[in-house]
């Protein structure tokens, strides 16, 4: 999240953009259409299924250029403007192409106090880009984001709207970047409840791919 108040400029979206995807690419498969039908059936109005359909479209196309939003709207039979207004309201919908891995580093509240900004700065240095930018090889985008709801394992980040990476440290970021470069996405990590450590001697989920426990957070060096 760049510092909006320092540069409070809202730019006009390209009003007649060249489509990123060709007409041929711009289709949902039968299976996807069926899935969208399922979404529709979950609500009394087709408009209500727009968020799930946009999610599906983003997973398929990687991001939501206007033609993809239109495809989603047309598939549901709802006005394009409605889908576009929704897509621009919610921050997790990517309106522009992002890096293959979007590193959403929480800097809010608890993470701020526990070194969230240290992690952002370290990533910026390591990847040689600024917050909000994407590396030249198109692999990484760094974003400072608002509270992700994992305050007990601050500082933390989320990879491309997917897995959480907890208890961040510089070493952990190094390992994460190496793994991502090697194409290995982090697993779902089950954070063990402190009381489970005491009562059960560890994580209760036997199906957990990986577990971690909340750690005494580091002292933050930079607040902002």
């Amino acid at each position: 999240m760049s510092d909006f108040i320092k540069h409070p400029v809202v730019s006009l979206p390209d009003r007649a953009p060249e489509p990123v995807f060709s007409k041929k690419e711009l289709v949902f498969t039968e299976a996807e259409k069926e899935q969208i039908e399922t979404f529709r059936a979950q609500y009394p109005t087709p408009e209500s299924a727009v968020m799930k359909t946009l999610w599906l479209a983003q997973e398929k196309f990687g991001f939501l250029p206007p033609e993809v939003i239109r495809l989603a709207a047309d598939t549901l039979g709802i006005p394009f403007s409605l889908a576009y207004g929704v897509a621009t309201f919610y921050t997790q919908y990517y309106k522009a192409q992002q890096g293959k891995y979007v590193l959403d580093v929480c800097t809010c509240f608890s993470c701020q106090l526990c070194g969230g900004y240290d992690m952002v700065r370290y990533l910026e240095e390591k990847l040689d880009i600024r917050e909000g930018e994407t590396t030249e090889d198109g692999l990484f985008t760094i974003q400072g984001v608002e509270c992700l709801g994992a305050c007990g394992t601050a500082p933390m980040l989320q990879v491309t709207n997917g897995p959480y990476v907890h208890n961040l440290s510089r070493e952990k970021l190094d390992a994460l970047i190496d793994a991502l470069k090697a194409g290995k996405k982090p697993p779902f990590v089950s954070v063990t409840l402190p009381q489970d450590e005491d009562d059960l001697g560890g994580n209760r989920r036997s199906d957990a791919e990986a577990t971690e426990v909340g750690q005494t957070p580091p002292a933050a060096e930079t607040f902002e």
């Binding site: 979206p13 390209d14 009003r15 953009p17 206007p66």
Partner: peptide, 9 residues
């Protein structure tokens, strides 16, 4: 916030 047409419209 501001009012706008969706792109291409």
């Amino acid at each position: 916030n501001y009012p706008m047409t969706p792109p291409g419209e």
